[in-house]
Write a protein that binds this DNA or RNA. Structure first.
Lengths: 328, 328
DNA sequence: TTTAAACATGGTATCGATTCCACAATTTAC
DNA sequence: GTAAATTGTGGAATCGATACCATGTTTAAA
């Protein structure tokens, strides 16, 4: 791979002139420009990104920190980010935390060192230490999925979606409604969706047995386990269950099927996620589509807008859509 | 962020000494080293990767080119790669081709410019132009999923797996076996699996109707469509179908269910993939586990071994495992 | 005691770009 | 016809690190 120096020599100009031609800055005569272009075409020269980064402090790389790539949600978000970024010649440097909160912070540092132009963080918590670290950052950050006071974020309306979902179950005649959630440290998925469930139940003056509220992690098996606990230990069996993710819902269905309970006749199920598979389960899952690609797209756009010295909105709330299928 | 120069000044040594301390190269007195370490801790200094890259030509970044992140297969592979790489302080620069063959080549160039230390390519074709480009590369490459003559690759034994699968169906008493494949330009998934199917049928002296062979793309809907064509246009309906991916199989099942055919009583289904969801379909899918994380892990290990000046194997064939469930 | 390793340190060139500045050659304005 | 812009170009500094080389100081060997 040739360097700018060699290009300059071959075109019989100085490095400065080549650089000016490359970046369309300053004056370059038609004659010189032509010679330079010819040489560049001949040699297939491309300027070194590292040298450029060192000098200009711009890398055309955006760091993306995510809890795991092994879920449809994450990969959709990344696809959305990539779609926007690739268009503008940016690339994605990946940092996978494997759901480890420590690493979320570590990677922020690591990406800083790599001098990425910006960071998109798909967050799973809203701890102060993380917030502080993000605020101190001198490069633009956008958080997806959690809401921070001072940091631009793309959020889903988890609370409203939660209430809508429960309200929908009630409208279908259900009075005993169970809930399968996740760790409440996850403000968005854990806390808000649960709160929405509790509030809607209370508003509608419906009581909730303790055992109706179960907690799992983000996989199918824990949904299965949660359903098992709920069904085995409840005095009154719920006639409907709200699971906060599709995977949990699939696990729940799997347990119900095992013990001979029919969905939706005996127990209705509703969830949030709208994963590809949700329409092929039996019965097809009634779920909420969160437009994950859209989140990625918006996040990338926000970062680019910021880098373009345009202002950036502090918070964007995405809309969602209840997909009514056959599990309720 | 401070630079090495400032650290040197604060610790009262030269930049050379700081560099030596940082890299454990050459001599540094205990005394100096302590002072330097103290200053580094105080300031939170971390050396600039770009400056380092410029000087040393090493970036600690591996480029990963993949056809799409939106499949479980890809994300598992990436997870495997990440697992090994993160351990060694390497990061992943992502390049998503969206199944566009042109881009596969473009990204090789782009990653070259970014001076990545190595490239892992999850390939979908084996075209000569691509092979040539890869061979010309001066940095290590490992290809996953396709086999090239001169380039180290991690491959699944698609042919043998295909024959095993068909042979298993036959052992279960099936004689009329349909096939849902993909574009044969995809040597591994498209061509080899089909060839295996044809060969096994021939070896067992079973005939194959033209309409039993259908082609889709890599999604559920096209599996549905393929099944529809197969069922509607065949003289004799197959009693079993081999779909080359889980998603296609799920689509096939979805169509069969729609027209009232029972799985596996009326039509048995088998596929390759072992996606998470495959065990929760109804009935649970009999499928082949290809150990995708393993592919990622091996690829990353190969790249690192090469960078470590150790030799690299030209080809690694991964093993697979038939998971027998209830769809056959 | 002389000689040679081993240890310790700093100076300087270098990687491959960009950018500011000085200078020269043209053009334009008055 | 002179002053002032405009245009075109190259030199040199710079970004933040590494690495080679020269020099000086100790320590060990002969």
């Amino acid at each position: 791979m040739p360097t700018i120096k060699e290009i300059a020599e071959m075109a019989n100009v100085s490095r400065s002139t080549v650089s000016r031609a490359l970046n369309n800055s300053g004056y370059v005569s038609e004659d010189a420009r032509k010679r330079i272009e010819k040489v560049i075409k001949q040699t297939g020269y491309v300027p070194s990104e590292h040298a450029k980064a060192l000098r200009t402090k711009k890398t055309k790389v955006i760091g993306v920190i995510l809890p795991t790539i092994q879920t449809e949600t994450s990969s959709k978000v990344v696809a959305g980010i990539d779609q926007v970024l690739a268009n503008q010649g940016y690339q994605i440097l990946l940092a996978n935390t494997h759901l480890d909160r420590e690493k979320e912070m570590e990677y922020v540092d690591l990406l800083k060192v790599r001098q990425v132009d910006g960071i998109i963080l798909i967050a799973t918590n809203t701890e102060d230490s993380l917030a502080k670290k993000l605020e101190e950052l001198t490069i633009p950050v956008v958080v997806i999925g959690q809401e921070f006071e001072q940091i631009p974020s793309i959020v889903y309306d988890n609370y409203q979606a939660g209430r809508d979902v429960v309200s929908y179950l009630i409208s279908k005649g259900h009075r005993q409604i169970g809930f399968v959630g996740v760790d409440e440290k996850d403000q968005a998925v854990g806390y808000l969706r649960k709160q929405a469930y509790l509030d809607e139940m209370e508003t509608q003056q419906l009581s909730v047995e303790d055992t109706w509220i179960q907690r799992g992690v983000f996989d199918i098996d824990s949904g299965y386990d949660a359903a098992k606990r709920m069904i085995q230990h409840s005095n009154q069996r719920p006639t409907a269950i709200f699971a906060v993710t599709d995977r949990l819902a699939i696990g729940v269905m799997s347990y119900l099927k095992e013990v001979g309970l029919q969905v939706p006749k005996d127990v209705a199920i509703i969830s949030i996620g709208a994963s590809e598979i949700s329409q092929y389960t039996v019965p097809a899952l009634t779920t909420v589509d969160y437009h994950n690609e859209q989140a990625g797209i918006k996040a990338a756009e926000q970062i680019l807008a910021y880098l373009d010295a345009k202002k950036i909105s502090k918070k964007i709330t995405l809309d969602y859509r209840l997909i009514i299928r056959n599990s309720v």
